[in-house]
Computed example of a mutant assay.
Amino acid sequence: MATWKDIENAEPGFAARVRAIFDAHKHKTIATLRADGSPRISGIEAGFDGGELTFGSMPRARKGDDLHRDPRFALHSASVDPPEGDEAGWPGDAKVAGRAVPAGPVDGMPGEMFRAEIDEVVVTGLNAAATALVIETWTPGRGLRRVER
């Protein structure tokens, strides 16, 4: 498992691109696991603070209950369409998967914060000519890899 700071230290350029994609929009999507093991998708806000990726859950929210029962999650940035006529200008999508660790109350409001222990970070975008998909994946064990297809 890694913290966001570990990724920033290992691959600062990649981490900066991932953060820019996440920071471009307030709302993200998180996948958690229901009690029966089926997936649940929920809207969420997430942020980067002090070398940590954090997100919160309101009291009695299903996603918070899910994370207490099974901490595995996948967090996805907002998805936007590539700019028409400038498809290569699309920043892409970013995803983070790992485990959520309870991190105390939300400052100034009801709810609970979680910090991410990260297993994988992925950016999916287009090459400079916008003719192929580019998938960049970082994991603690393998580091950064790039596939173009």
Rank of each mutant, 00 (worst) to 15 (best):
A100F: 07
A100K: 08
E112I: 01
V134T: 12
I118F: 01
R69S: 06
L133I: 12
S77K: 08
P71L: 05
E136I: 11
E84D: 11
F114A: 02
A97L: 14
A61P: 04
S79T: 04
V106A: 12
A97T: 12
F73H: 05
D86M: 11
L67C: 08
R72W: 10
H76W: 13
A100D: 02
A94F: 02
R115V: 12
A128M: 05
M58K: 15
S79I: 01
M109L: 14
T124S: 14
K63I: 03
P110N: 09
H76T: 15
K95R: 05
D65H: 10
E87M: 07
S79N: 07
A103C: 07
R115D: 05
W90S: 09
P105F: 07
A129R: 14
G125T: 08
H68R: 15
G64W: 02
N127R: 04
R115G: 08
L75R: 01
G89L: 06
E84S: 12
G85N: 12
H68T: 05
V122N: 07
L126F: 01
M109F: 15
I118A: 00
G64R: 03
S79G: 01
T124P: 14
V121R: 04
W90V: 10
A97V: 14
D81N: 13
A116D: 03
E136A: 11
P82A: 04
N127S: 03
V96C: 12
P105E: 08
L75K: 06
G85M: 13
R72G: 13
L126R: 09
G89W: 02
P110K: 09
P83Q: 15
L126G: 09
A74C: 14
R60Y: 12
T124Y: 08
P59L: 10
T131E: 10
P102I: 00
D119W: 09
L67I: 04
P102M: 07
A74Q: 12
A61T: 06
